[in-house]
């Protein structure tokens, strides 16, 4: 990933900043520039998700992509945030801990890096929320 491409979406990745449509009350992550339901009538505003949600479904990655080999096996899940938007994210948990419906919270982690000399990309992953 290029440095600029990551930087443009950095705030969204750091702080789960998405959008909310005031017309239909739907939430979006990543942010949208137009509401797919309300189209021109949509009134989008920036929205920071609290980050709490639950696992809708998950898989365990055993054969990881280049750069992530050291982390396998690791869970990758669809997380439905409490406001309604869903996103795909690695889960900071052992594969044996995973179950559908698990409550999760956001954590700040390294998402990847461009080799030993390039940029380190940070952002949000999710971890089991034992207090929820």
């Amino acid at each position: 990933m290029s440095v600029v491409r990551f930087w443009r979406n950095q705030v969204n990745r750091y702080n789960l900043e998405g959008t909310h449509c005031n017309s239909c009350d739907e939430y979006f992550y990543p942010p949208r520039s137009m509401c797919p339901t309300c189209r021109r009538e949509g009134e989008l505003e920036s929205h920071r998700f609290e980050g709490k949600g639950e696992i809708v479904t998950y898989t365990i990655i055993h054969s990881a992509a280049e750069g992530f080999e050291n982390q396998s096996p690791y869970p990758l899940a669809i997380v439905k945030l409490d406001e309604g938007a869903s996103l795909t994210s690695p889960i900071v948990a052992d594969p044996e801990e995973m179950y559908i419906g698990m409550r999760v919270k956001p954590v700040f982690r390294k998402l990847g890096e461009s080799g030993d000399k390039g940029m380190i990309y940070y952002g949000t992953k999710f971890a089991p929320d034992k207090n929820d």
């Binding site: 982390q71 954590v107 700040f108 982690r109 940070y122």
Partner: peptide
Amino acid sequence: PDLDEDAATIAVESAR
């Protein structure tokens, strides 16, 4: 630390 943790991620978690 976890595999995806470093001083920056730890600093962010404590700051938050």
